[in-house]
Structure formats: C-alpha cells, structure tokens
Design a protein around this nucleic acid. Structure first.
Lengths: 291, 291
DNA sequence: CGTCTCATGTGAAGATTTGCACATGAGGTT
DNA sequence: AACCTCATGTGCAAATCTTCACATGAGACG
C-alpha cells in the first residue's frame, strides 16, 4: 500500500459508484481514475470493483477499502482545518527562551500575554545550554551580547537593559557607600567568577581591583542574591533591583554598562500570527525597561 | 488536503527527522521529498518543519500531522493485509443466485460448503427479477435454458436436471395412473399457465390436450405444490420428488425433458479462490443430480 | 585546523503520469 | 425503432513530476 493517492481515488469511486463522478470530484480525467484503480487492484491482487456499463460497483474488498478510506478522509479534513487555522490564530504552544536573569522581567509579560490568549500554553525555557531556534526548540529567544548571526534567524534589536550598581542596607550600614570611583578601592564588590564579555563585567574588572571583588558567582542569579544579601556592591538590572526594598543605587546607571538585547526568531516561524503577536506585546511591555 | 501522497511523504519526514531518511524509506529521490513538503506547506499555509542542516524537525503542526498520518498508515497496512489475503482465502460473503426451484437442491450444498469454511457468510438470492452478476449482485448464478451470452460472464455447462412426471397418492387413488401416452387424454395435469421455453413444458403442451391441464400455475414452486396436493400429474425434478413420500413416478425420466443448467460467474470474480472453491464443491455435489 | 561525511537545496534532463480525442456499449425516451 | 445520453476504455501527445548532477553548509574526527 505504497501509494495513498490511489487509495484516495478508489475511495471516491467506491463512494460515488462511477469513474466519471470520481474524476470530477478529484479534478482529474476519468482515464486517470481508471488507471489508478487498475494499478491498485494489480498491486493488491484483488478486484475492488465490478466494472459494468453503468459504472463501478464495489466488491466486498472495495467496500472494506471504502470504510477505511472514509475515516482517513475525515481525519485529513479535520487535520487540514486545524493546521490552516493554526497559522492565523494564537493557540497551541509558545516557547520562549532567555537567560535566567530575565525571568523576573519576562514572567509578567508572559503571564499577561497568556491571559489575552486563553488557548495558549506558554513554555519558558531557561537553562545552562543555549536552546537552538533552528532545531525548533523555541519560537522566540532573547539573547544578550553581540548581534547573533545565524543565517536562518530573524534578529531585531530589543531594549538595552538598564544596569546600575547597588548596595544592600546590610552592606551600607557596615561599610557606607563610595562617593565616586576613587573610593571603590575601599569597598567590597560582588562579581562574576569568570571573565565574561558582558560590558558591565568588563567595566568592573577595569575599575575595581580584583582583590576587592570578594564574592564571585558563576551565574547572574547567584550574583543577584549576593548583592541582596549585602556581600558587596554589585551590578543589577534596574528593573530587578526595584523589586527589592533594601537596595540603594550607587551612583547612577550608565549606558556603557548595559548590553544590547536581541529578539531572535526562526525565519520559518517569524511570520506566524502567534510569534508576531507576541513580539508586538513584548516590545510594548519592554518600553519601560530602558535605562 | 487533496494529495494524500504528500501527507505520506510528510509523515515519513516527521517520523524519521530527515529528508534523506524519508526518501530512502519511500524509495524516491530526496529532491522529491523536499518538493512534496514545500507543496504541502504551501497549500496549508503552515510550516510543518524547521529546516536545519542536520535534518527536519517537526513543528507543532508537523507533530499533529504525524499523529494523524501514523494512524492512517497503520490502518492502510491492516487494510492491505486483509485485502491481499482475501483474494486467496475463502472468507467474507458468497452470494449465489438461482431460480427458486433449485432451492431444495442447493440448500444442502450451500450449507455443506459453509460448514467447510467457518469464516464464510452465504447469501442465497432467489427472486422474481434476475440478479445481475455484472452489477456485483452475486458471485455465482445458476441459470436454466439457452446458454447465457453476456460478454463479461464466464459460462460453463452444469448438470441437466433430471425430470419426470409424478402423481400424488391422493390422485392415484381417485384416477389411477396412465399406462402410456395414449391414456394421457383421460387424466388431469398440472402445468404452467404461460407458455415457456422450458423443454418439459413444451412437451406437455404437445402431448396433452390443453383442456386436460386443469391446474395451471405461474411459477415452479406452485406447480410443485399442485402436484404434491394431487391436483394432477405434473413434472417435477427427480431430486425434488424424492423428498416427498407420497409421489409415484409416471413413466420414466427422459433426457429431452430436461433443460441444461449453466453455471455463470462474472469474469472479475471467476478466478478468485472463493468462487473457484465453491464451483468445485458444487460440481462434486451435483454429480448425483443427473438423469 | 583542515578534511570527510552527511545533510539540504536547485537547475536541467529524462521518465512517468496525465489529458485529449475518439470508440464502444447500455438504457431511456420520443 | 431510432436517437440521445452517459458510462467505460484505449492510443497518442503534452505536461508534470521525478531523477540526476552538483552546490552549499554544518558537525565529527583526527
């Protein structure tokens, strides 16, 4: 049974009882229908139809095929309906991935978007490894750093995340706050353990002696926890810091600290209503994130 | 969704994850697979796969199609198995048609054949109208008279049904029996109301005065009932008469009374195991029907 | 870091499928 | 009884589909 179109032809013949009728429904010449039937019967070794001058009458075998193909036809019709609708509607899954740092900012956006589209299921992936759009692991990715340059990805500039140095109340009470950069050498800092390409991190290593970076973490979230706990002064996104009541901004935010963020989608999914709709919602929500 | 083969192609791609793998399974060139997918996606307006260098990954839509097509594939495989087996096995229906007269003789044959093939359902059709093999109304027909000459029918000579004149006990007690043809004019007969081409009927009209045919019927079964009831002397198949205890043969059977019977099958069904098997069984059983 | 393998993608040639024209036959109708 | 309609069936030309050949790119492996 290695030719489903012939089955479909036989189905219409069985359903309608004539080759001509099936040909019209299928939009092909009746000679084609005859050849499909002959080929199928030849491969199966069974007569599917009785041929007579008034048309084709299904044999038992033909009726058996009719029943099976009828359900197939129904199921395909349903499937086609679902799939066609899917392109234009916001349903099913929306998979978004980003660095874990952005979770506090993204969560309300994702929740709000889902609220607007009740049939949508949101999957928000954060993890150690990079989720790859080209393998279909996510619809939308939020990336930091240099503009990604994957050929099949659609990249658009997103916000620049506003960053500033913060100190917790606990730290302030014990060490005070530096008035300017010259006093950094008398303070303790929270920073990344490894050298990263993040602008704020590079700035920190240039302007603060290594020995003053006394609390070093492997990821942004732990870094945040360190600052909040008063282990030292450290960089936090402004929007993140605002969520805490016990943090004081040290100095003011500077553009050169903030890394550009990028919205990345796979080209195959970029034009779908679901992705477009989410991108519009996300950009609107992100207007307040700027420095 | 007017091209089931493209669905089948997409199914294999979704299942295997690569175009090349699907092409190998399907026995076509990988370019064909790519074009099927492109065509299907174009018609549906939905991306079914994420294309990347390591293969094709199914999107949500592709996975949806995978599920539907998987069941279709299973059902078609089952269907093919059933249909291929059907040509070689004696199962399903066997539809036999004949004149109602032959019912008493055929019934035991049909019953015996069905006993040998437990998966068989027998439909025995007798009726006023002729059931037409070319419309698939029956697999095997038993016909009387001149050899049928339908182009698509396979006709083979069957037995000549042994016929003889019979009188019931009731008649014999009241009128005695004729010693030879010369005494027919002093007896009463049961015969057909209309002139038919049946040899025994024509013989009756030639050798018996019309006024002596006092019980005239429209069909063979009523004719039989008349003879059994003692309405007069009449023709009965020998095999039928033997089933009654109260009938006496008048004279002896003559070959010229008997009409040839024909076994007719439609050419499309003639070579199937079911029909061939039944024909063999029927011929074996009919050996005792001859004059 | 270059090479090797294996995947997708595309233009042109070739093969199969399709469509067309016409023949044939069965019923129904006037 | 002749005709009209509607069905299947077949040879041949045309169109579509498939294959072939080759290009390109991403990982894997020394």
């Amino acid at each position: 049974m290695d030719n489903w179109d012939e089955v479909r032809t036989a189905f219409q013949v069985a359903r309608l009882g004539t080759v001509s009728g099936a040909a019209e429904v299928l939009g092909v010449h009746h000679a084609t229908v005859i050849r499909h039937i002959d080929a199928l019967e030849g491969k199966l070794g069974v007569k599917l139809f009785q041929r007579h001058a008034r048309g084709y009458t299904a044999t038992e075998a033909g009726n058996d095929l009719l029943l099976v193909a009828q359900t197939t036809d129904d199921q395909f019709a349903q499937l086609a309906g679902r799939l066609k609708g899917r392109g234009a509607s916001v349903t099913g899954e929306l998979v978004v991935t980003s660095l874990a740092t952005f979770s506090p900012m993204l969560a309300p956006v994702l929740a709000g978007f889902r609220e607007e589209h009740p049939e949508l299921t949101v999957r928000y992936l954060t993890g150690d490894r990079l989720f790859r759009l080209e393998y279909g692991e996510a619809h939308v990715a939020i990336r930091a750093g240099a503009a990604p340059d994957q050929p099949d990805n659609v990249v658009q500039p997103f916000v620049r995340q506003g960053l500033a140095l913060y100190a917790a109340d606990f730290y302030k009470e014990r060490h005070g706050l530096p008035k300017d950069e010259s006093e950094y050498k008398d303070h303790y800092f929270v920073g990344h353990d490894q050298e990263t390409r993040a602008p704020f991190n590079m700035w920190l290593r240039e302007h603060v002696p290594m020995e003053n970076i006394v609390y070093r973490t492997a990821d942004n979230r732990s870094n945040e926890d360190g600052v909040v706990a008063g282990a030292g002064i450290g960089f936090l996104p402004v929007k993140v810091a605002e969520r805490y009541g016990n943090l004081t901004m040290v100095g003011s935010p500077r553009p050169e600290w903030s890394a550009p963020l990028w919205l990345v989608t796979h080209v195959d999914l970029h034009r779908t209503a679901k992705v477009q709709s989410f991108l519009a919602y996300l950009k609107e929500a992100a207007k307040s994130w700027e420095v």
